[in-house]
Computed example of a mutant assay.
Amino acid sequence: MSEKKLLIVDGMALLFRGFFATSFTGNYMLNSKGVPRNGLFGFLNYFTDAIHTFDPSHVICCWDMGSKTFRNEMYDGYKANRSAAPEELIPQFDLAKEMVEAFQVPNIGVVGYEADDCIGTLAKQLQNEYQVIIVSGDQDLLQLVDEQIQVAIMKKGTGNYDVFSNDNFYEKKQLSPKQIIDLKGLMGDSADNYPGIKGVGEKTAIKLLKEFETIDRMLEERSSLTKGMQKKLEQYEEDLTISRKLAEILTEVPLDFSAETAVWKNDHDQIVRYLQEELEFHNTDRWLKKLSKELA
């Protein structure tokens, strides 16, 4: 295993999580210019905690670049059930990226692709040279777990992660990482608004994958299924096909990236200057203490 450790942060997940953790109170933490900062505050808590916890030598942050991607071209209804981002969150997107730049961490995003696809592409490109750790709240990313790729799912609170690796994956999920794609294909995803097979939940989907391993094999051997399931396949096979495609994270996004730009520098002076002067976060010790043991 490589001693070099590369942390890939799902910027969208951390910012949304930080925003909604505080917005329910109505406290958007406006600065002197009236700009909300509550999502940024939460992002900083999660971001610095991830660096403190996983002690990386390199750090990358990935973002969505607009609401439309190639998946919307594949399926009109993809994420169509999602409401627009709260107006208080909108100005915090660009500020979050600026803040990441102040940490001298590269922001990665490609128009037409989701952050997940950039994360998957980078993880697969770099897994031979680095121990890759992906931090997110999105369990879709579990399909990326591989040799030298771990996925740390954020749990309630700060500093609480469920870390998935090749060694513990089957014990935790009763499936292999690659089977997560077929699992979501069978179940669909109400959050992303794609259908799967109507009436098939997680328990049934896992049972089918344990028996057949893949959707392809299940379709080849459909005669061995119950009459009810055969009927469902006949009725929803088109939905199954598109759902499986939508569930799969693309790992060949056209991006040009050098890991040397991601070396974790931990420049306290630059970080403090940005947080205090640009964002008006004056009590920066809470974040710097988490970074104090890191590589200078």
Rank of each mutant, 00 (worst) to 15 (best):
I153K: 12
L122M: 12
S176F: 13
V163M: 03
D167G: 12
A115W: 00
S176D: 07
E98D: 08
E98V: 01
N107C: 05
L141M: 15
G157N: 02
Q127Y: 09
Y161G: 11
Y130L: 09
N166Q: 11
T158H: 06
I134V: 15
S176T: 15
S176G: 02
A152S: 12
L141Q: 15
G157M: 04
G109S: 09
K155C: 09
D140S: 10
L126W: 10
P106I: 01
D146L: 04
V151F: 09
Q127W: 02
M154W: 08
G159E: 12
D167I: 01
G109I: 02
F103R: 01
V132R: 10
E98N: 11
I180L: 15
Q143P: 10
M99H: 01
Q139S: 15
V110S: 07
V135G: 14
G137H: 13
D162L: 08
K97A: 01
G157E: 13
D117C: 08
K97N: 00
K172C: 09
Y130K: 12
A115F: 04
I149A: 04
L142F: 09
G159N: 11
F169E: 04
F169A: 06
V110T: 11
L126D: 07
N168I: 06
G120C: 06
Y130C: 14
A123Y: 10
D116V: 05
K97T: 00
K124N: 13
G120I: 05
K172E: 07
M154H: 08
E129C: 07
Q143K: 11
Q150N: 14
Q179Y: 06
L95Q: 03
Q143D: 09
V135N: 13
L95P: 00
I134H: 06
L126N: 14
N168S: 12
Q150A: 14
N160M: 02
I180W: 06
D162G: 03
T158M: 05
A102P: 02
D146G: 09
E129R: 10
K156L: 04
E171R: 07
P177C: 13
L141F: 11
P106E: 04
A123E: 09
K172R: 14
D138P: 13
K124T: 06
M99D: 00
V105G: 01
N160R: 10
V110D: 01
E98Y: 02
V145Y: 05
V100H: 01
L122Y: 02
Q92H: 01
V151L: 08
F103G: 02
D116T: 04
G109T: 00
L122T: 08
Q92P: 00
N128S: 14
N168E: 05
Q143N: 08
Y130H: 13
V132C: 13
Q150I: 01
Q125F: 03
F103L: 00
P177A: 10
F169L: 06
M99E: 00
I180M: 15
M154L: 13
Q150E: 15
V135P: 13
L141H: 10
Q92D: 03
Y170C: 00
Y161Q: 04
L142H: 07
I134F: 14
D138V: 08
L126Q: 13
V135T: 15
I119P: 04
S136G: 07
Q179V: 13
Q127S: 14
I134Y: 11
G157K: 07
D138Y: 08
Q174D: 11
V132E: 12
P91F: 06
D116M: 08
